[in-house]
Amino acid sequence: MVIAIASGKGGTGKTTVAANLAFMLDDAQVIDCDVEEPNAHLFLKPVMNTKETAGLPVPVVDESLCTGCGRCGEVCQYSAIVVIQKKVMVFHELCHGCGACAYFCPEKAIREEEREIGIIESGTAGGLSFVHGILNIGEPMAPPLIRKVKERIERGRTVIIDAPPGTSCPVVETVRDADFCVLVTEPTPFGLNDLELAVEMVRKLGIPMGVVINSCTIGDSGVREYCEREGIPVLMSMPWDRRIAEQYSSGMLMLRNLREYREHYGSLITNIRAELSRDETAHCHQR
């Protein structure tokens, strides 16, 4: 069971939910896919035991074989390779590593070379196993690194994925293929606006989902009303509590010290499982 923790709006508590959910599950695998700013390790404090570099295959052109036909530029969707006046130019920072240029080159003048884009570290934290990716500073290509981080998913286990914020390519790459998506939000107009975008994204990906409302004792009722209207289950509502923020800002795992909230996370797990079995039943009926 792979559960992705995502949100439209940043700073609503994705990592808090992911880390504390993992803490409650105890034997889960935690994958931090927010490769531009991974931070789940700050709370789970894993002992890392492997570190590998991750690369992206980028084209290298043998100009002695290139006839300047321009086929590579036609098939590239990202303008990473272009032929201007018979001269081929490669822009590595635009390349997504799809390999189309090399595949379609009629002269076989293009080979692919790995360009390092980041590192992947893995380790353990108690009964949890932990993996995260760290994108090189200034590197724009997050999705290929996220794909490589996700190759480490152990499908037989309960896997908690901490997603980047927003609804752009890195988030889609993170959330796709998950069995369930938890969208974390806050009860404000900003939270609602970005939640609606995230819901649209998850629906397109065809993944069952539910919402977690953090700081539910402040703000307005917009998020709750929206969820009711759209038939999206609210899986957990956490009150606003200064102590939670204090735990977070000192790098502490909230549930370790604020035991009274363990019940909330217990119901979160129960609710996710209920949604998953409901979804399975629905699928069986469709068949």
């Binding site: 272009v82 201007i84 635009l94």
Partner: peptide, 18 residues
């Protein structure tokens, strides 16, 4: 055509001008 491209607009535009 590159006016609304997700990325690589400068490169595509340069090619169009060339």
């Amino acid at each position: 055509d590159a006016s609304g491209a997700a990325g690589g607009a400068g490169v595509q535009s340069a090619k169009a001008v060339a």
